[in-house]
Nucleic acid binder design. Structure first.
Lengths: 237, 237
DNA sequence: ACAAAAGTGTTGACACTACACCCATGG
DNA sequence: CCATGGGTGTAGTGTCAACACTTTTGT
């Protein structure tokens, strides 16, 4: 068996961008580092890839450590590898994009890692090139949510259409017509009426739906077009 | 300055998927390896990342070596890192997606690397997980070309609308209505009439257009919807 | 009874498909 | 003058945004 010329000595890191939704704002799960380097500063949750570990397994390990959750929605977002990005040594970071239901997390694990949910608007400056990563992730969220039904990953199992609407309004920071939104969503056939009603609401109680997971999986790669025009940046191409 | 615990010894490779269009079929630029490992088999063009090299620079270096071209359209496609993917040693490969005008390549460099343009339908089985990479790239091409004007990257500077149509028909392997296609394209405002006519054609000569590059760059991230329905896999979501 | 939020109907603008027709060129 | 292929016009269909109206609930 042949050997490759020379090991490069480049380190391989994994960083996770984790989004949640609290019913009002899109939030990021960030950690205030209680370890070196850059101790005391904010950053994404990350770690190094183990030698005998697949990439997705590594990402899931990191996500599990921080949130106590498995089977999270995760995608590769991209790779960041500029020479000077990590001042300690050459490190290439594979960035993962994760969506979770904000209610489902492990408080203890979060305290241990010194992690907090932070609204996008209030986010502090992060170490290294993590700010760029987050910007790309927000862009990706907007892009993908306009075309694929990933929004559901951020909601609890049962949710109302007005809740879903608030989520989309938060993602795109724009008001949406209630009636058109409702009809559009229902027409997808992805929602199953649970028969339950939302008890929180002070006024008329909204119907609680759940996701038709079979249909969701089958149709995930089909397109839709949810947002009135987030697709377009203002004027026609 | 702190040091990180332990170098992992994982190698970082770069692989390039290069698409071209010969006026009839979408083609891939593949190499028949004249080096170990897997000498004599077909694979993507690739190489290792240099220690002091940015990722995109590495990809461009590899692309330049093979084609003699700079300023190629390149995107990150994803990272492949399964533990056993390379039998020699643990190697993580960052895969790049490139589109070039098939007429603009360096014959000598191609011969030196033992490279050929191969139609998607005729492509041989490739080493390692390169087949998966190519499948993902084709999917990405179909996905992205339906929404963004990347098709132009595959054509010469001056091209006719019928040529462009053949390109899209090749990408989606489906016939398109000539008249609707033409109107849709012209309505984007991306095409500038050069005043020239295609001299090749045996019958009526088609108008040669060029891309309005300023508008192309400005509007690149806007969506469009070119294909009748390649977006959708058959039926509505 | 009234306010606030959820749910349903309707309409006009616009975009897209599916056609028919005309023009230019070479043999 | 005819075959081939490029270019334009138009009618029918459907989708989507923008509206008004009704229903449910708590106070």
């Amino acid at each position: 068996m042949t050997n490759y010329p020379n090991a490069t000595g480049i380190l391989l890191a994994l960083d996770c961008i984790i989004f949640g939704f609290d019913g009002k704002d899109i939030k990021l799960l960030l950690i205030k580092r209680n370890f070196e380097p850059e101790k005391g500063k904010w950053s994404l949750m990350g770690g190094f890839l183990d030698f005998d570990e697949n990439l997705e397994d590594g990402a899931n390990r990191i996500l599990y450590n921080l949130t106590g959750l498995k089977d999270i929605y995760v995608e590769q977002l991209g790779v960041y590898g500029n020479v000077g990005r990590d001042p300690v040594t050459r490190t290439v970071s594979i960035v993962f994009f994760a969506l979770i239901n904000i209610d489902d997390h492990d408080e203890d694990a979060m305290r241990f890692h010194n992690a907090s949910w932070i609204s996008l608007d209030d986010r502090p400056s992060l170490i290294f090139d993590h700010n760029e990563m987050v910007s790309q992730a927000i862009e990706h969220l907007r892009y993908k949510a306009a075309l694929h039904p990933i929004g559901f990953e951020l909601l609890p199992e049962q949710f109302t259409i007005p809740q879903l609407q608030k989520l989309y309004e938060a993602i795109y920071d724009t008001p949406i017509d209630r009636r058109n939104f409702s009809r559009k969503l229902l027409s997808t056939g992805l929602l199953i009426d649970t028969g339950n009603k939302n008890s929180q609401s002070a006024t008329k109680k909204a119907t609680l739906y759940k996701l038709d997971t079979a249909r969701y999986k089958a149709k995930f790669n089909s397109f839709w077009n949810f947002m009135p025009d987030p697709k377009d940046n203002g004027d026609k191409l």
